[in-house]
Amino acid sequence: MGYVIAFMVLPVAIIATYSFFQRGQYGGIVYSLTLDNFARALDSLYVGILGTSVALSSTVTLLALLIGFPTALAITKLQPQHQNIALVLVILPFWTNFLIRTYAWIVLLSSEGLLNQGLLGLGIISDPLALLYTPGAVVMGLLYAYLPLMVLPIYAALSRIDPSLREAAIDLGASRFTALRQVVFPLAIPGTLVGCVFVFVPSVGNFIVPELLGGGKTVMVGNLIRDQFLKARDWPFGSVLAIAMVVMLVLLFALQARITKRVLGQG
């Protein structure tokens, strides 16, 4: 069944190699190899967009971590049969339509939206707040979309930790919190980093949320790539940005693997 493998891997391989080829070769412009596209990516305009994307995605990742870790920890404390239910509850929204989940936040955040209506009704504010079309709305939308991707790997990491390790720490004189800090946290680092990569990477590449919740005012790398392909029709440059995104993913995973090795030794 060797041919099966070849057949399956081929499309994947083509894409991988293609994204490296195309930089000077396709896009209807030039067929000669050039590094100009890479140089262009260092232009201050694009560096600025990259900076915004990284800043927003980092915020999203940090928030997802701060919410996701206690959530995952809470799930591990449930009884086994309840753990499965809680996991399904957390993941379920992730399997539903992304556009609709983003749309729900328009309903909540727009100036006639429910949040403003509620605050007005309670007399807390007198004029509607500009909630939608802000970087904050983008962060909220991305957090909402990708929180399950943080909870899942952290839960997997926590549930693999032998509970007797925590008890051993307590037996040796550590308080509950010290045991959590010195034994559970370090051992959960690998899974936590996976969660961070899982949230960070799609956040950087997302163009729907910045468009729908950021109103086009917050431009992220994802929007830039999309525009290079569908509007500016500058495919080589768009490819450079996309390759940068994939390279970043690979680098982040490599970093994750390194840190994991540091924490747990080679084991």
């Binding site: 083509i14 195309q22 396709y26 990477v201 590449g205 163009f207 790539i225 995104m245």
Partner: peptide
């Protein structure tokens, strides 16, 4: 695992090629 956007443009490029 790879970002959907990267896969999308890779495929678009492939089909155009």
């Amino acid at each position: 695992i790879i970002p959907d956007l990267a896969l999308a443009i890779g495929l678009l490029a492939l089909f155009s090629a």
